[in-house]
Amino acid sequence: MLGGLVTHAGEALGNEQMVDDRDEPVAHLPVGSITVMAALVARSNPPDWVRAFAAGAVRIPAVDAVGLEARAAALTGRSIKKASKIAALRLAIECMDLTTLEGTDTPGKVRAMCAKAVQPDPRDASIPSVAAVCVYPELVAIAKHSLQGSGVKVASVAGAFPSGLGPLPTRLDEIRRAIDAGADEIDIVLNRSAFLAGDLARAFDDIAASKLACGAAHLKVILEAGELGTYDNVRRASMLAMAAGGDFIKTSTGKIGVNATPPFALLMSEAIRDHFEQTGVKVGLKLAGGIRTAKQSWQYLVIVNETLGPDWLTPHLFRLGASSLLNDVLMQLRMQATGLYQRPDDFTVD
């Protein structure tokens, strides 16, 4: 029983109330067996480890905050020139999730963004397409239609984005509907309510159930690092999201004040590296929110390259979620090509 996992965790934490909380949503889950759940995540971890992790019994080393920030600052201070800069900018485009997540998104706006995703610079066909577009579930079908045959993937946020606090069955249903509409990738949020209350089992189960609902689609788990309070929590949440089956871990929703930062990127890269060393499974990293300048994009590429190595510098394992970043990258690429500083007015409006 999935309930078995939770009961186990509940006992470990000495919290019976938690068990009761779980009873109803569990009844709606597509699977009801810890064996299935464990088999799913056992691609990387033995069921015992998963159970122990969910119960909070796995020790996650504490983060040296000062060291982390100093190293992140050192890595972002590097000077990248000429050919390396051009290569980094092109890679940033290839790894970009071009995003629009506004209440005002219209089909027309999504179509325009998809056209730009396929051919970012109408004047320069050598500029590569972005990796994916990221939209709300309601607009997935339109994006899918606009991107037919282009190779650009459709990502959809789902699961009561950005809070993640809708009823679990509704959240899972939202995921399935987004996939039915054509989404290749699903971005969900970590259940911070459960995570911050210490109910790791519940946060874990939500992600694992979402992974099952995703089927073949890629699951990205947004930790919303800016809301987790401490670096220790960000590392713990990273390990939890990876153990629960996330294909990517993602920094932020972009909906709060603190978004992707170099220390978060470094910390989450280290967590991914640790997870890879323990399990042999490569989990991807998506940085999102507040990434607006070309300079920031290559700073993050440096962090990932230095921590995870060049294997991660592909759209399969690294993404930059952004909306206004693309124009700045295009502007810098043209500056590199012409030697002249460009003006934003010469690039398409998002």
Partner: peptide, 8 residues
């Protein structure tokens, strides 16, 4: 020359 060529 840099100033004159600056598009902004």
């Amino acid at each position: 020359p840099w100033m004159a060529g600056h598009a902004d």
